[in-house]
Amino acid sequence: MMTPVLQVENLVKRYGDVEAVRGVSFSVEEGEVFGLLGPNGAGKTSTIEVLEGLRVADGGRATVCGLDPQKNPNELKNEIGATLQATSLPDKLRVSEAIRLFASFYKRTRNPDELLKRFGLEEKRHSFYNQLSGGQKQRLALAMALVNDPRVLFLDEPTAGLDPQVRREIYVIIEELKREKKTIVLTTHYIEEAEKLCDRVAIIDHGKLIASGTPRELKQRSGDTTRVEVRLAKPAAKEALSKLEGVADALEVDGAYVLHCQRTAPAIVSLVKYLEAQGNELVSLEIATPSLEDVFIELTGRRLRD
């Protein structure tokens, strides 16, 4: 029987008049990889930083490993590891010094040399922090997050700003941690990251949790449909598009039309006929199985990345 290692109830966080997190609730089980997916500014980082004890919540309750981040910050910090979005280390600190320094702060520690080896930083151990590439910095951040062998690992946008190859490297590391049954809470605005890495995903927008479940469950919300995205030469009425044969519904997103189709071939035929009749033309057409992006579009009417 699994036990929730992290529980959030009705969490609220304000910055002046802005309500960044507006009553978010979720729980994470031991050994689970849980993703908070949403656009920038959705309130993901605020949520996660309350759980790390870096920010004070304005309402609601949160416990991590049975500890209240505000009441027991030091006990909590011994139990968690994290990578932050906006962070750095002193330029002239060497890699091995950094990891040893942080290891010295904890009661329970893992061998810093082994961590460096595991994260492919052995050859960089004598390099200064400012000599590392973006990917190396992120690998060091991950190694440092594991230095106290944490029960819960928080990864805030672990691959933001990294190029695709480095991003894949980080995925491999996170998948490895997943196999080791580490409990991980990660935030991301990359669909593929959430689909690939997470056991469960919560979609957050404007400070509210709008849907949660396994990636498969979430995608099933779109029904057993195929996604057809078209761009047209002239605007069309989406009501008319949704009434075409084989089409379940139609949405207009950023000037394109997304049709969810139960039967793809008849839908496309009827679409082409309809456009001909209207004197409109097809500029582009893309067929895909629904992704979490579609779930997000369905729920918010917007794309995840603006």
Partner: peptide, 16 residues
């Protein structure tokens, strides 16, 4: 400098 560059935040994650 440490505060502006977010270095202190990283320290704050540890029990210090």
């Amino acid at each position: 400098t440490w505060r502006e560059q977010g270095i202190l935040r990283r320290f704050r994650l540890a029990p210090i």
